[in-house]
Amino acid sequence: MQDVNIKITDRNGVVHQVVAPTDMAMNLMEVVRSYELAEEGTIGICGGMAMCASCQCYVVSNHELPEISDDEDAMLAEAFHVQENSRLGCQIQINDQLEGLEVVLAPES
């Protein structure tokens, strides 16, 4: 396995090129937290259980992601600032197929 390069635009519009490991069972929300790309306490509030929408992001690259689970779909139905390309970062597992992924963090609710 290898690391993947991901482009993340934070809530202030700053673009970050980050390297995410594919061998640590991390999800996108954990990558954002590890690089401190969102203010502490504003992302991953539920710990990655798809029970809040604090890690909502917009997937702007043309990557094929796993289908949205019922839990993720229900959470997005209640979230603010939802768009067609909204996903919960905690539900996007880092793997080698995410090379070049581009996301924008959704505004805080």
Rank of each mutant, 00 (worst) to 15 (best):
C57K: 04
T22C: 15
Q17C: 03
N12G: 14
A38D: 07
E67M: 10
E84G: 00
T42G: 03
L76V: 11
E78P: 00
L76S: 11
V32D: 07
V14T: 15
R33F: 00
V59Q: 03
D73L: 04
E64W: 00
S86I: 08
Q97N: 13
M49K: 15
D71M: 08
P66Q: 11
E64Y: 01
A50N: 02
I94A: 09
E108D: 14
M51K: 04
A106W: 08
E72M: 09
M75D: 11
A25V: 05
N85A: 06
P66D: 14
H63C: 01
N95T: 06
S69I: 02
L88D: 05
Q97W: 04
H16N: 15
H81N: 15
V14E: 13
Q91G: 12
M24C: 04
E64P: 00
A106F: 08
P107M: 05
H63M: 01
C52P: 12
E102F: 00
G47V: 07
G47N: 08
H63I: 01
M26E: 12
L37V: 06
D71I: 01
L88C: 02
P107C: 05
Q17G: 06
A77W: 00
T9K: 15
V104E: 14
S86M: 05
S61T: 04
K7L: 14
V60Q: 10
M51Y: 00
T42C: 07
C57T: 09
L65F: 06
E39S: 09
V59C: 02
C52Y: 06
E108G: 10
A25S: 14
L76N: 12
N27D: 15
V104Y: 01
H16L: 08
E64A: 08
Q93R: 10
E84P: 00
V14N: 14
A38K: 03
A77N: 05
I8E: 01
C57M: 15
E102W: 00
L101A: 09
T9V: 15
G13K: 12
G13L: 10
Q83L: 13
R87N: 12
P66A: 08
S54T: 15
C55N: 06
C52A: 05
A106D: 09
N27Y: 03
V31E: 09
G100V: 03
V59W: 02
D70I: 03
S54E: 02
E39L: 05
D10T: 09
V15A: 14
Q17N: 15
M29P: 09
L28F: 02
S54G: 01
G44T: 08
E64T: 12
R11G: 14
M75C: 12
Y58P: 09
M75F: 07
P21M: 07
S34N: 14
Q17E: 15
N95Q: 00
D10K: 12
E72V: 08
G47C: 09
Q56W: 03
L65W: 09
D23N: 15
T22I: 10
I43K: 10
E84F: 03
V60S: 13
E30A: 13
R87Q: 12
Q97T: 13
N62W: 01
M26G: 00
D71E: 14
S69V: 02
V59K: 05
